[in-house]
């Protein structure tokens, strides 16, 4: 099976003057078409940096990301923009990822900018409405503004936005962690359904081992910017090879609490 995404020896260092933070340190990973790959690791282990770099929002210190046989960092700006309809992302912080001055409909439809033949007017409204219903919101919500929604609802809006171009790769950075169990289940089912129907691949970053168990085919474990373990979900969860993974699994409820805390905003 050919892989949709190849991450090769990816490093991202931040020079802080007082020292160098290796947010990513020589990470290699691959993701097959139609696969859901979980990424777990303690706070600060480099998960979000990995997501941003794979989405070409940030340049790596070294290494490459090959998406669908193309090295995304060697693409020219125009070619990169064209390629973007195939990979979309859901950001970790639902309070920062929606422009407070735009209506929900405009926010969700933004990636259609990538598609010259995208529907307009009433057709576009209908498309956005369907997506809103897919993520458990109301089609009429497209006329409202972000501040009228809770963190979990905003996260669902961000998910709808990421899905509108029918990407082949979805990177979800803690996309469901702010949601309650019922909604979380609904979103996970939606993602699995997209996988089954359209063969979408998902890089699923989470603190929640339960979710990993539920939807991930494989899981990668990160610590201090390094990949410490990767393998089929059940194998890693049942027989972790690394002490760090064992500690992470044992501490799962605590990690979940940390995840929630870091997201609660005034």
């Amino acid at each position: 099976m050919t892989s949709l995404l190849e991450i090769r020896k990816l490093s991202r260092h931040f020079d802080l003057g007082s020292g160098v933070v290796k947010a990513l340190d020589n990470v290699s990973l691959s993701l097959h078409a139609g696969e859901v790959l979980g990424v777990v690791g303690e706070s600060g282990s480099g998960k979000s940096t990995l997501a941003r770099t794979v989405m070409a929002l940030d340049h790596p210190t070294s290494g490459t990301v090959v998406l669908d046989q193309r090295d995304i960092f060697s693409l020219g700006p125009r070619a990169l923009r064209k390629a973007r309809r195939d990979f979309q992302m859901v950001f970790q912080d639902p309070y920062g990822s929606l422009n407070p001055r735009h209506r929900i409909g405009r926010i969700i439809a933004e990636p259609l900018h990538l598609m010259p033949d995208a529907p307009k007017g009433a057709e576009r409204r209908a498309l956005v409405g369907t997506l809103l219903e897919d993520v458990g919101l109301d089609a009429a919500d497209q006329d409202r503004f972000p501040h009228e929604f809770s963190g979990g609802q905003r996260q669902r809006i961000a998910i709808a936005r990421a899905l509108i171009t029918k990407p082949r790769l979805l990177v979800a950075d803690e996309a469901t962690s702010a949601l309650d169990l019922t909604v979380q289940k609904q979103i996970l089912d939606l993602i699995l359904d997209l996988r089954d129907r359209h063969g979408i691949s998902v890089l699923f970053i989470t603190h929640n081992i339960g979710v990993v168990q539920e939807i991930c085919d494989r899981v990668a474990v990160m610590q201090h910017g390094k990949l410490v373990e990767v393998g089929p979900t059940q194998e890693v969860l049942d027989a972790p090879q690394q002490a760090y993974t064992r500690r992470l699994l044992a501490a799962e409820p605590r990690l979940d609490v940390i995840g929630r805390k870091s997201r609660s905003r005034p």
Binding site: R85, Q88, M89, G96, S97, N99, P111, L112, H113, L114
Partner: peptide
């Protein structure tokens, strides 16, 4: 630095458009 600007870049928007819209 906001994520909604990163989302606009994910949507293929260029600097001028992002400046005007966001």
């Amino acid at each position: 630095a906001r994520d909604y600007v990163k989302a606009a870049r994910m949507a293929g928007k260029q600097d001028t458009l992002i400046t005007l819209e966001h």
